[in-house]
Simulated scan of single mutants.
Amino acid sequence: MSEGASVRAFGAASITGARIVIVVPALGAGGTEHVVSLIANHWARAGHRVTLITLEAPGVRPYYDLDPDIAIVQLGVPPRRSSKLRSGLLVLRRLQRLRKAIRRSEPDLVLSFLTRMNVLTLLAAIGLTVPVVVSERNNPALQPFGPLWKWLQSLLYPRAFGLVTMTKGALDHFPANVRRRGWVIANAVDLPVGWQKKRGNNILAAVGRLTHQKGFDLLLEAFSRVSKTYPEWKLVIWGEGDERRKLEALRDTLGLRGRVEMPGVTPHPGLWIETADVFVLSSRYEGWGIVLLEAMAAGLPVVSFECEWGPGAMIRNSSDGILVPQGDVEALAKALAEVLGDRSLRERLAMSAEVSARRYSPERILSEWDALAFCALNRATATRLQDA
């Protein structure tokens, strides 16, 4: 059977009613959570029994819409600041509850997202015959982790059935014994249903958690250098996070209080695309940068740091977007000035961006997840037959 035929068979009836568990820390707003919702909905609608396990407190509502047939198990042990001793006890409690939840679900396949969750899932699955696929959603070389988590990652990842990254660069970070069972699957772009263009108010938009990684401090510095030249434009940074007060203080220090808004998370997923006129990604590093792709798909001109990894795969510089050297505030300011000051350039970039983003349609990307699941489920079936 060809790979394409295998994919179609999985989506249809070759492996029906598979029990699939997806493990993720939370189901809030974010690129990983968006991907999880797409995959879970897709497999549930294909007739598979999908269970989502999170660390959240019971009753927390998912940010993204989920198929009503998807079971959600909330373990009630969310991340929290605490002493090293208490943190260690909390990790043990998560591990115990996660193992119990996985065993109760009797899965044919377990899929886990994000490094710490991947490590816990692989630990929880020790002694079980179920295949576990782990997915890295950030830059594995640059995201901050303590030495214990890094050691556990190196010890446990070779035990996984497979590893999914979003770029080849991220996959190449891992040793050969892990890369041999690696898949590179980009993020799909999935714009909100029924969104409307409400543009024309000269809004430069940025989106992401208010963290050091997202580089909004660099963006504020760059915008301050062009704000007087383009007084009709304002910057809107959508998102929430630990660095809000620090960023607000920097905004005020730069004299941008009336020119920069930070309204928090959009009430509905992706609605920031309605009012944006230009999009900018200022991240220090990324696993992919889904908001950049969403902006392109919505027909927005985009400017981005060429951070590792993601933007360089999506953008052809000066064709469907503008890439500037990573962390170069002066180059970012220059690129913003170029785009904000040239309507015809904005229109050309926007048109090309929308066409380029079609490479990442949900149908195409989800078929790659189907192929991975088909492979894992077939292997699990063969193992059970051998043991019988």
Rank of each mutant, 00 (worst) to 15 (best):
V133S: 11
V23L: 07
N177I: 10
V133D: 08
T211C: 12
K234N: 10
I203G: 05
T32P: 07
A380F: 14
G127F: 05
G182P: 01
L155F: 05
F305K: 00
L204D: 11
V303Q: 07
G28H: 00
R104L: 06
P192W: 06
S282P: 06
A337Q: 08
S2F: 11
S82D: 14
E294S: 05
S356E: 10
V339W: 07
I39M: 08
S6C: 07
R80W: 00
K234Q: 13
L38K: 11
G258P: 01
V226F: 04
N317W: 04
Q143L: 07
M262H: 03
F216V: 00
E106K: 15
V303M: 03
I53D: 06
T115F: 09
P68T: 12
R45T: 13
A188W: 04
P175G: 10
E56N: 06
R97E: 10
V303S: 00
L250A: 10
T32D: 00
R19Q: 13
L336M: 14
V132F: 02
E338N: 12
Q386F: 04
G258Y: 01
G31V: 12
A353V: 02
P158M: 04
P68I: 09
P131T: 10
R180Q: 13
W238Q: 12
F145C: 09
L366Y: 02
T253I: 03
G215L: 04
R343E: 15
G76R: 04
L85D: 01
G30P: 09
V110P: 08
W43V: 01
L85V: 15
W272C: 09
F174R: 02
A160W: 00
V302I: 08
V134A: 13
L281S: 15
T275F: 02
K334L: 13
E308K: 09
A186H: 14
A331Q: 10
L55R: 08
G258V: 01
G264I: 01
V110E: 07
I102N: 07
R179H: 03
K214E: 04
R86N: 04
G258N: 02
T381L: 15
E354R: 15
S154M: 09
R358V: 00
K246Q: 14
H212Y: 15
L250W: 04
K334V: 11
L254K: 03
A26G: 06
R80P: 02
V193K: 13
D67F: 05
T121Q: 10
D370I: 00
Q153S: 12
D69M: 10
E363N: 04
A333I: 11
Q326W: 07
F10W: 13
S2R: 12
L235V: 02
S367R: 15
R259N: 08
A382F: 10
V189R: 04
D242C: 01
N187T: 07
R99V: 03
I70S: 12
I322L: 14
D328R: 11
G255D: 03
I237R: 06
L98S: 05
H34P: 02
L323C: 14
Q74I: 11
L250R: 15
E33T: 06
S2Q: 08
L52R: 06
T115G: 02
G4I: 12
L332K: 08
D277R: 09
E56F: 02
A376W: 13
N177M: 05
E338W: 12
Q143R: 11
A9S: 14
G241I: 11
L345M: 14
V119L: 05
